[in-house]
C-alpha cells in the first residue's frame, strides 16, 4: 500500500477519515460489483436499511404513543385476526399499547444497543489490541493477562452480574455489554497486527522514517479493518439477542421504553392466549439479526480474498 505525503501532515482523525474515504473510493465500484454477485448480502443490506429507516422515521409513520396505552384496550389481536382492528395493525400488549408503534420505536433501541455496544468495544479493543500487538513487551503481557482473565468469565454471567449490581437501564446495559465485549476485538486486533507487522510494507514505512503511531494508524489499521468489520457484524447480532436474554431475567431496559427484548420477555406468559405480544417483536429481532449476520457473512465472502468467488 502506498501513502500520499500530504496525509502525513494532517491530524490523526483526518487520517482515519481519509483512510476510510480512500478505501471506499478504491473499493466502492469493486464492492458493488461483488455485492451484486452476492444477492443474499444485498437483500440483507436492504432489510437492514429498512430497519434503519423505520427507526429514524418512527414518529412519522405511526400516530400512537409507544409508551402510553389504556388497560381497556389491552391484548387486542392484530388486524387480520378475529377481534382485531386496523387502529392497532399488529395488536396491543398487556398495557394496551400499540405493538406496531412499539416495534418501530423499539428499532431505535435495538439498533442503538447493537451499534453502541459494538462500536465502543471496537474502539477500545482495536486501540489496545493494536498497541499490544505492535509494541509487545510489558504492555502486551499486562493487557493480554487481563484479557485472559476477562475471557474466563462466561459472557452472560458477567453481563448478568453487572446488570444485577447496577440495575436495569440503557446506559448500564451498554456498559455491561462492553465491559467484556472489547476483549474479542482486542484479541483479533492484536493477532492481526502482529501478523501485519512482519509484512514488507511496514518495514518500508519504518525505513522511510514514519513514526510508530503513524504506521499503526495509516498502514496497519486499514488492512485489519476488514476482519474487524466482519467480527463486528457478528457481534452486533449477538448483542441484540443478548439484550433479550437479559430482559428475560428482568435485567434489560427500563419500562415503559420499548425494547424488543423486553417486549418478547414480557409477552412470553401470554403466548397461549395472545401470541402476538411476544411473537411479533421476536420476529423483528430474528429478521434484523439474521439480516445483520447474513450481511456480515456476505461481506466476508466479498472482502476475504481467500474466499473469492471464482
Amino acid at each position: 500500500m502506498t501513502t500520499s505525503t500530504d496525509i502525513r501532515t494532517q491530524p490523526a482523525w483526518r487520517y482515519l477519515l481519509d483512510i476510510r474515504l480512500r478505501l471506499w473510493r478504491r473499493n466502492l465500484a469493486d464492492f458493488w460489483a461483488e455485492l451484486r454477485k452476492h444477492p443474499v448480502a444485498l437483500i440483507a443490506g436492504v432489510v437492514i436499511l429498512i430497519y434503519i429507516l423505520a427507526a429514524l422515521f418512527a414518529p412519522q409513520i405511526t400516530a400512537h404513543d409507544p409508551e402510553r396505552g389504556s388497560l381497556r384496550q389491552r391484548l387486542i389481536p392484530p388486524a387480520w385476526e378475529e377481534g382485531g382492528s386496523w387502529t392497532y395493525p399488529l395488536g396491543t400488549d398487556g398495557q394496551g399499547r400499540d405493538i406496531y408503534t412499539r416495534i418501530l420505536f423499539g428499532a431505535r433501541v435495538s439498533l442503538a444497543v447493537g451499534l453502541l455496544s459494538v462500536g465502543i468495544s471496537v474502539i477500545i479493543g482495536l486501540a489496545l489490541g493494536a498497541a499490544a500487538g505492535y509494541y509487545r513487551g510489558r504492555l502486551d503481557s499486562i493487557l493480554s493477562r487481563f484479557a485472559d482473565l476477562l475471557m474466563a468469565f462466561p459472557f452472560l454471567i458477567f453481563a448478568i452480574g453487572v446488570m444485577a449490581f447496577m440495575g436495569p437501564g440503557f446506559t448500564n446495559l451498554i456498559l455491561a455489554l462492553t465491559f467484556k465485549g472489547w476483549v474479542e476485538f482486542f484479541r483479533l486486533a492484536r493477532g492481526e497486527v502482529m501478523a501485519e507487522k512482519t509484512r514488507e510494507y511496514v518495514e518500508a514505512a519504518r525505513v522511510s522514517g514514519q513514526s510508530h503511531t503513524r504506521i499503526m494508524l495509516s498502514e496497519i489499521t486499514p488492512n485489519i479493518m476488514q476482519s474487524i468489520f466482519v467480527l463486528a457484524t457478528l457481534r452486533m447480532g449477538f448483542m441484540i439477542v443478548t439484550e433479550a436474554s437479559l430482559s428475560f431475567l428482568g435485567l434489560g431496559i427500563q419500562p415503559p421504553t420499548p425494547a424488543w427484548g423486553s417486549m418478547v420477555a414480557d409477552g412470553r406468559n401470554t403466548l397461549l392466549n395472545a401470541w402476538w405480544v411476544s411473537t411479533i417483536p421476536g420476529l423483528a429481532i430474528v429478521f434484523l439479526v439474521l439480516a445483520i449476520n447474513l450481511f456480515g457473512e456476505g461481506l466476508r465472502d466479498i472482502l476475504d480474498p481467500r474466499l473469492k468467488i471464482e
Binding site: 420477555a265 421476536g282 447474513l294
Partner: peptide, 22 residues
C-alpha cells in the same frame, strides 16, 4: 453460491438470530 449454499447458511444463522428463551 448455489441456492443450496444460501438457503442452508440462512437456516444455520436462524438459530443464532433468536433469543434462546423464546
Amino acid at each position: 453460491n448455489s441456492l443450496l449454499d444460501r438457503l442452508s447458511m440462512g437456516a444455520a444463522f436462524l438459530g443464532i438470530s433468536m433469543p434462546s428463551f423464546w
